[in-house]
Every structure is written in C-alpha cells, then in structure tokens.
C-alpha cells in the first residue's frame, strides 16, 4: 500500500491543497458566475412571465371594451329608433290637431265672411232703399216746383 501511494506520489498535503484549491474555485465560481447568471435568467423569466400576463390582461380588457362598445352602440341605436318613433307619433298627432285647428279656423273665417257679406248686402239694400226714397222725394219736389213755376 505504502509503495503504491509512493509510486503515484500520493501525499496528504497535496491532496489537501488540491481540495482547498477546488473548494475555492467552487466558491469563486458560485459567487461570481453561477449565482449572478442564474439570478439574471430568473429575473428575465419573471419579466417575460409578467409581460405575457400583461399582454393577456390587455387582450381581455380590449375584448371587454369591444363588447361594451357594441352594447353601447346597440343601445344607442335602439334609443334612437324609439326617439324617432315617438317623434313620428307626436308629429302625427300634432298634424291632426293642426289640421283640425286649421279646418275650424277656415270654417270660422268662411262663416264670418258669409255673415259679413250678408250684412253688407243688407246694408246696401237699406242704403239703396234710402237713396231710392230720397230720390223719389227729390223728384216729387222737382215735379211740384216745376208745376208751381208753370202756374
């Protein structure tokens, strides 16, 4: 055994030095290489995960917004239709009222005109009668005056 160790140059001091050397290398690489690199990978992975989640969230919100938009447009269209309908109905009723009013007014005006015409005609007749009477009186007077002169 001793001989074998001697041939291979095995020396516990060398073994310990090599173990310390490797241990130190492990420590240095762990602190300055593995840890920061893996931490960087983890940070990036988290960031990408969050970015994907954000994108999904944005997509979802976009979808909701689209649905909301469609709903609002539909409601607005329906409301608009209602307003137009009611306006039409309102217009129809007021048209009828206006027509009735106009008709009534027209009838009233017509009656008025007829009444006035009748009154005027009567007045004319009365006037004419008065004129005729006056003329008759005048002509009688004339005749009487001529008669008197002749005498």
């Amino acid at each position: 055994m001793e001989q074998i160790l001697d041939v291979f140059g095995i020396n516990w001091k060398l073994l310990v030095v090599q173990m310390i050397n490797f241990g130190l290398l492990l420590l240095v690489l762990y602190i300055f290489l593995y840890k920061p690199v893996l931490a960087m990978v983890d940070v990036r992975r988290k960031k990408i995960e969050r970015a994907i989640q954000d994108a999904e969230e944005a997509d979802r919100q976009l979808g909701e917004a689209e649905a909301e938009k469609a709903r609002i447009i539909r409601e607005a269209t329906m409301k608009g239709d209602d307003i137009i309908d009611s306006a039409k109905k309102h217009a129809e009723t007021s048209e009828i009222t206006i027509m009735k009013d106009a008709h009534r007014k027209a009838v009233h005006l017509l009656n008025e005109a007829e009444r006035r015409t009748a009154r005027e005609r009567e007045e004319m007749i009365q006037k004419a009668e008065r004129e005729v009477a006056r003329m008759a009186v005048l002509s009688a007077e004339k005749i009487l005056r001529q008669g008197a002169l002749k005498k």
Partner: peptide, 12 residues
C-alpha cells in the same frame, strides 16, 4: 496526470 488531483476531486 497526477493522482493527487483526481483523488482530491473524488474525495470531495
């Protein structure tokens, strides 16, 4: 090419 090195690694 030194058994000390490889043996040290092996012990670890």
């Amino acid at each position: 090419t030194d058994l000390n090195t490889t043996l040290a690694l092996t012990v670890i």
